[in-house]
């Protein structure tokens, strides 16, 4: 079938006619355009199997990974636009610095509690693991930030990906920085209170993560801390939990 691909390029919209086979993806069409029709069309990609998160773009008005979006269900007309809420560098290539700077604000890596001297593994079937597993799959593709209309209204808002990561680390009993992280996610303009529960992030996430669930959990955690104080997690108890489950 012949597919009309409209690309919102930096120089304006450009239309390409692409001969496509069944089962081909949007990324295949982009490769065809770059190889056969116009080598100056710019886009990002790497793994081609939906695990690197490089090829995020707005496909027919909705965020998606080019490599995981089939051409066939889109019909004969495909419009490709760069992600929203981040500056465009060229064509479909955006500057993800705004996305990652928000990520960095919550220090998105495990900072183990001082009493943990040897690596502690949370086994796959343990309660701790099941609690954090729901959000661990994030590939930082930035689709949620683009879909989030709150980021459009309040640019400081940390956004779904960073808050989801913060929730994962806060839910992890091995992490030491719970208080600091909560202070960052509880901010009035940048933090969780700004979320309007549109759940657009949940709808576009290619990894089926529900950042809104994480944000709701963070709100409840913050309220519980204020009303009844922090949950005490003494060292012996922590060790007991982990040993029981390992």
């Amino acid at each position: 079938m012949t597919v009309t691909v409209r690309i919102a390029r930096t120089s304006g919209e450009q239309v390409f006619a692409v001969e496509s086979l069944a089962q081909q993806t949007v990324l295949d069409a982009l490769f065809y355009i770059q190889n056969e029709l116009d080598p100056t069309v710019s886009f990002r990609c790497s793994c081609r199997v939906g695990m690197c998160g490089s090829c995020g773009m707005v496909i027919n008005g909705k965020e998606g990974l080019a490599c995981r979006t089939s051409l066939k269900p889109l019909g004969g007309d495909v419009t490709l636009q760069p992600l929203r809420h981040v500056p465009v560098i060229k064509d479909l290539v955006v500057d993800m610095e705004g996305f990652f700077s928000k990520y960095r604000m919550i220090e998105p890596y495990l900072q183990p509690r001082s009493e943990i001297v040897a690596p502690i593994v949370a086994p796959l079937d343990s309660h701790i693991r099941q609690e954090i597993d729901l959000g661990l799959e994030c590939i930082s593709c930035g689709l949620c930030l683009s879909a989030c209309d709150v980021v459009g209204m309040v640019p400081e808002f940390l956004g779904p990906a960073a808050l989801n990561r913060a929730y994962n680390l806060i839910a992890d009993v091995r992490d030491d920085k719970t208080e600091e992280r909560l202070r960052v996610v509880g901010q009035s303009r940048a933090g969780v209170w700004q979320c309007h529960t549109h759940m657009s992030c949940v709808e576009v996430c290619p990894k089926n993560i529900a950042p809104t669930r994480a944000i709701a959990h963070l709100k409840r955690t913050l309220i519980r801390r204020r009303v009844v104080g922090p949950k005490k997690r003494p060292i012996p108890k922590l060790q007991r939990i982990l040993q029981e489950e390992i």
Binding site: H85, V86, G152, A190
Partner: peptide
């Protein structure tokens, strides 16, 4: 387009 401004924490991290 809304470009995200570099964000600083509003609250003290004490």
């Amino acid at each position: 387009m809304a470009t995200p401004s570099p964000v600083k924490p509003e609250v003290s991290t004490a």
